[in-house]
Design a binder for these strands. Structure first.
Length: 284
DNA sequence: CATTTCACCTGGTGGC
DNA sequence: TGCCACCAGGTGAAAT
């Protein structure tokens, strides 16, 4: 998400939305497509950033001039100026693509925004688990994630999230109202690096284990963001993202393959219905 | 209340 | 080649 948001931001910020097309396929829109189309047109994309797993596009008032911006201008001041937000959740298979308008339109393209810079921003989502929402900030609150931000949370706050809970630690990590933005890959990878089995009751982890988990989670997320940052150029073209994460995976989707540390075959189980991968020797 | 299961969709893969 | 079961980066409603 971080990679997608920063890449899209780089390509579309400061451009006006001149035309909007929504497909007849019904994505689970929080805002009716007709209202989104009406509201988006004529606004300037001030900035695009990530909050948890959501991509938030800050929008100007309709017909507002394109702002002249200095390099130093930070996100806070931009967010403050915004009159509306377009909030994109990519679900499992959603993609945001910036492309030339004449390029063929992929199947399952649900939205196309034509931009003043001559490109088109497209939302493509085969499984339709994604979600699009428009907020008018004159009337509604700006988007805010329910859970804590995993990259910056401290030891005390992190430990408090799991106190008294009986759920498996893996389930707690995936619970977006506790932590925002942790998905299946990072849950498995951080539990491996912390040496903790995914089915352990979250409330029974020791303070030392929780601190190991917090550090592992932050390390994994930062590392992944860094790798994403280094392969920015191709991610927007459909498949650019696919290749690079796999190289770093210790357990995710490595069922039966030898553990990178101890050579024990990686095991796959189900936890709250999600495929879960761990090393039976390294994780306790 | 906390927790688990299931439905929502399409597409890719591997076995027979 | 076809058919089928199973798997997939997520989440929210319904059931327990």
């Amino acid at each position: 998400m971080e990679t997608v948001a920063s890449g899209v931001n780089r390509r579309v910020r400061g451009q006006r939305i001149e035309g909007v097309w929504f497909g007849s396929h019904r994505e689970p829109f929080r805002t009716p497509a007709s209202r989104q189309a009406r509201e988006l047109e004529g606004r300037v994309l001030l900035s695009v950033h990530r909050t948890g797993k959501h991509i938030v596009c800050e929008l100007s008032a309709k017909g507002a001039p394109i702002p002249h911006r200095s390099q130093k201008m930070d996100m806070q001041s931009e967010a403050g100026e915004a009159a509306a937000q377009w909030i994109v959740h990519l679900g499992m298979t959603g993609r945001l693509v910036v492309t030339d308008p004449e390029n063929p339109v992929a199947t399952h393209t649900h939205a196309r925004l034509s931009l003043s810079g001559g490109k088109e921003l497209r939302f493509v989502d085969p499984r339709r688990f994604g979600c699009l929402e428009l907020r008018d900030l004159q009337r509604e609150e700006p988007f805010q994630a329910a859970g804590a931000e995993p990259l910056t949370i401290g030891s005390g706050g992190f430990a408090a999230l799991f106190r008294g809970r009986r759920v498996a630690i893996k389930a707690a990590l995936l619970n977006q109202s506790l932590l925002t933005g942790v998905g299946n890959i990072y849950a498995d990878e951080s539990l491996f690096r912390a040496g903790i089995r995914p089915r352990r009751a979250s409330g029974r982890l020791s303070a030392a284990e929780l601190e190991r988990l917090r550090e592992a989670l932050q390390k994994v997320l930062r590392h992944a963001i860094q790798l994403g940052g280094s392969s920015v150029s191709d991610y927007v073209d459909a498949d650019g993202v696919k290749g690079f994460f796999q190289l770093e995976h210790c357990v995710y989707r490595r069922t039966g393959e030898p553990c990178r540390v101890c050579k024990t075959p990686i095991r796959r189980i189900l936890v709250v219905g999600r495929g879960t991968h761990y090393c039976p020797h390294c994780q306790h």
